[in-house]
């Protein structure tokens, strides 16, 4: 029995459940589209669908997320071979993490993570 059958079946069922739930309303719910319903939700000052740009902070967060995610992944690898690598592994990973902490301190200093 291919060991991947459970994952493929659950993935398929999950996506099918999502599609059913997502498409259900189209068939079951009443449909009386009025212009008012079609508009997106606006409250307060009626603003034209302006296309102003969002702040770059989100972008910097995403970049730092990737680079620290890679660090987490390498730490998982080290956690797998922790006991047989003993002190040698610890020193090795300590150097790896310290260099990344230097990057982290640079980011803190330049205030890239300051949310206005």
């Amino acid at each position: 029995m291919n060991p991947y059958l459970p994952i493929i079946i659950i993935l398929g069922l999950g996506v099918a459940l999502g599609l059913i739930l997502s498409g259900f309303a189209h068939f079951l719910g009443p449909r009386h589209p009025t212009p008012a319903k079609e508009e997106i939700f606006e409250c307060g000052v009626p603003t034209v669908a302006s296309r102003e740009r969002m702040s770059v902070k989100f972008y910097l967060t995403a970049i730092l997320f990737i680079l620290f995610d890679i660090e987490t992944v390498f730490l998982f690898l080290w956690a797998k071979a922790f006991r047989s690598l003993a002190w040698f592994g610890i020193v090795e990973v300590a150097v790896f993490v310290l260099i990344l902490v230097a990057g982290y301190l640079y980011v803190l200093k330049t205030g890239a993570l300051e949310w206005d």
Binding site: V56, Y59, I63, I66, L67, I70, V73, F74, L77
Partner: peptide
Amino acid sequence: VFFVITVAACEAAVGLAMVI
């Protein structure tokens, strides 16, 4: 493959910084 993924991540990060 780990090293290629790391290089790809750094390349995407700096590339998209330039796009912005």
